[in-house]
Design a protein around this nucleic acid. Sequence first.
DNA 1: CGCGAATGTTTGTTACAACGGATATTGTTG
DNA 2: CAACAATATCCGTTGTAACAAACATTCGCG
Lengths: 152, 152
Amino acid sequence: MPLKIEDAIHQKKFRSPLQKAVLNLVFTANWFRDQQRTTFKEHPIEPQHFNVLRILKGKHPEPVCPGDIKAVMLDKAPDITRLCDRLVKLGWVNRDVAGEDRRKVEIRLTAKGLKDLAALNAEVERAANKWKGRLTDTEAEQLSDLLDKLRG
Amino acid sequence: MPLKIEDAIHQKKFRSPLQKAVLNLVFTANWFRDQQRTTFKEHPIEPQHFNVLRILKGKHPEPVCPGDIKAVMLDKAPDITRLCDRLVKLGWVNRDVAGEDRRKVEIRLTAKGLKDLAALNAEVERAANKWKGRLTDTEAEQLSDLLDKLRG
DNA sequence: CGCGAATGTTTGTTACAACGGATATTGTTG
DNA sequence: CAACAATATCCGTTGTAACAAACATTCGCG
């Protein structure tokens, strides 16, 4: 049985359904982030790093440059350089100046990065299974559509 | 016309409608946080402080102790002490040890805090009007219900 | 071509988040 | 009532976020 937002934040009255929905949005996103953090607890990265790895995986074996990474990140970090520093140190990605435009930097997954990311993905997948059945496909699509509308 | 999540993060295929919805959730919450930040741009506080102020307002003139604040925050800060330090410095709240249980600290809005919060609220309200019409009341309620379900 | 604007990334700085441990007070148990 | 556990908050440390400025390279234009 779901804990409704009213109970989660101990607030019964809201100014409007919209305000309630927005508070719920923020609360739920933070709830999700905390879930993700516990999943990554034993790993040397945080959700943002994971997001970057998945972006790189999506283009692999093509490289991606910091600007493009930033453009599609869910939670846009202001400094991709230092975010990637850790991934470089872990041996999961490497950096090269781009041939075509030497201002750009090409970031790509290494073999080790690909392998470890697969393991991470498996764990995330396993954690995600917990709430696989909470929304039907139709409801998930509704939710996504409503969020799109909210952003305008 | 709304920018759909597919376009916002340049991703066309998702593993499932649920995954798409969750990515959209995170993306939209961050989008909202950034909107809020620009609203607070000219003010000496951040969204978390604003959340605390509203919690205090909700109970005013009764005081609230750090533990209770933390329990109902949307984005739970690990250290309410230092969060409140700024509010104290601004003269918006004051702190006293609780009479009944001297481990606890009672935090309450000052007159100045009440006044400045009202001004802040007005600005936030004004910013919120921009997307007042994007969701109907029914849709907002649907959204909130779906989020409740997602958290389980 | 040469110069200034534009673009893409890095670096310096400041303030804050996260975590753990310290402190103070209250509750519990023999 | 002494000793120990539990609770509530605070503080010290470390790493990182945010912002701005610097740097390097490319583009546009006379």
